[in-house]
Write a protein that binds this DNA or RNA. Sequence first.
DNA 1: GCGACAG
DNA 2: ATCTTGTCGC
Length: 240
Amino acid sequence: MPVPDDWPSTEAEALAEQRRLRALVEPSGPGLADGALVAGVDVAYDDDADLVVAAAVLIDSATREPVEEVTAVGRISFPYVPGLLAFRELPTVLDALAALRGTPDLVVCDGYGLAHPRRLGLASHLGVLTGLRTVGVAKTPFVFGYEQPGAERGAWSPLLDTGTGEEVGRALRTRRGVKPVFVSVGHRIGLAESVAVTLALAPDYRLPETTRRADSLCRRALADALAGPRRGDSGLVPRV
DNA sequence: GCGACAG
DNA sequence: ATCTTGTCGC
């Protein structure tokens, strides 16, 4: 599946697109209902092969067991520029989500939502494009500041825009004594609800089960794609 | 002007 | 993101 033909190809176009979409983010909404299906999405790259592989994993929020797993392969359509990650990752992520038979009640992204220099990280961006509810769970604080949260699981502290003092997300401890994760609102969900969801999806590991599953899946799929057409493989169905 | 900088 | 050995701990 190709990249949308109106997809920004320059930084100036990308910045203009962020300006346009940021006004459409809805930063509030309820948490997870019983038996809700939560999707995890993640991406793996190989710049040399010009390959990007996205994975979408649908998980039952009650059992935390996957009910569906799909992947999508694409070409790299945008360079990595901090603050413009969505333009690099989302085209293939959208393909993966489209391949899902089920519809997620929430999508957990590997990165930020409102915790973004222009308040439109990839989680919020994905939410506005699809209308799906989204949250962002990142592994590093990006450009924001925070105080160390308490050591116990569930402890959190505000993630702050050091310029404005605004709380753009939360540093959340999902495991006792382990580095916190950084949660922010994506679309159509509140911050407290985003934190509760993240905690519920990460009972045993630092990262939510959704991102753990999506991460391992897209890595495997990328390795398969690279091993892909083997020597002697014409790519055609062999005739007798 | 020079770094830092989600993945 | 990705490149990478061994090591400490449950």
